[in-house]
């Protein structure tokens, strides 16, 4: 009973709920902006890697590898605490979205590359033989086929980005986690943290379930 009162105190939860929901909104804002930036960046990188001259290809590969190696927390702290020394001062929101977007673009680029490579070579040849430009080859022929393949891993990546938004709390962003820790301090009770954890699960569980179903569906191979 005592345990329940400590970790799942309904009164504390009820009182902190508005604060947690404000945090949730911030979390979702960070997530959506980062996901969109990552998607656009990743698609551009993947297509550029296909058509760029050799030095460009190499640069993109280096970018992709670096931003998949660097821990997101380290990158975020560099962006927020180190860049001001060279005169680049980003707000907590901009810092978080920059760090998340850069990393998400790297993963997304790899996902799109794999998707594009999974399209049979004959499709590129048929498009080329008909005289399609590179742009139309991509937009009409290749990407519509690659999209089916990349939807599950892309959704997975979105889940990761949403989870990683919690790191924003280290740069004083009032996201869900930050609001929960503040509410915990105020109430001198850990229930808001449990509440935050539950909200993350409620937010992400459906997406996790959808990925699972999509993967099953696509592996059945409707091609």
């Amino acid at each position: 009973m005592n345990l329940l009162n400590t970790f799942f105190n309904l009164r504390v939860l009820w009182e902190s709920l508005p604060q947690l929901l404000w945090g949730l909104i911030t979390t979702i804002e960070i997530g959506i902006v980062s996901i969109i930036a990552g998607l656009i960046g990743g698609l551009v990188l993947a297509v550029a890697r296909l058509y760029a001259p050799a030095p460009g290809k190499l640069l993109i590969r280096i970018y992709v590898d670096i931003f998949r190696s660097i821990p997101l927390l380290v990158l975020l702290i560099v962006v927020y605490y180190a860049l001001p020394f060279v005169g680049i001062r980003l707000s907590p929101f901009a810092s978080t979205v920059t760090a998340l977007g850069l990393v998400s673009a790297a993963y997304t680029a790899e996902i799109f590359r794999a998707g594009i490579e999974a399209v049979p070579h004959g499709q590129f040849e048929a498009a080329a033989a008909l005289g399609f430009s590179n742009r139309h080859t991509m937009s009409d022929i290749i990407l519509p086929q690659a999209i089916r393949i990349v939807i599950p891993p892309l959704t997975n990546n979105c889940i990761n980005v949403l989870k990683d938004t919690a790191l924003a709390s280290v740069v004083a962003m009032p996201d869900l986690l930050k609001q929960a820790t503040q509410a915990q301090a105020l109430a001198a009770n850990p229930t808001p943290l449990i509440g935050a954890a539950l909200i993350y699960v409620i937010l992400l569980w459906p997406m996790v379930a959808v990925v699972g179903r999509l993967e099953k569906h696509l592996s059945k191979g409707r091609r």
């Binding site: 040849e125 048929a126 005289g131 430009s133 139309h136 519509p144 091609r223």
Partner: peptide, 25 residues
């Protein structure tokens, strides 16, 4: 060009396969 393995575009109808290149190119 006509290929041994056809290389039709599987995600569009037969009609669209035939009409797309004249529109785009």
């Amino acid at each position: 060009m006509v290929f041994q393995s056809f290389n039709l575009f599987p995600h569009m109808t037969v009609l669209r396969n035939v009409m797309l290149a004249p529109i785009r190119v």
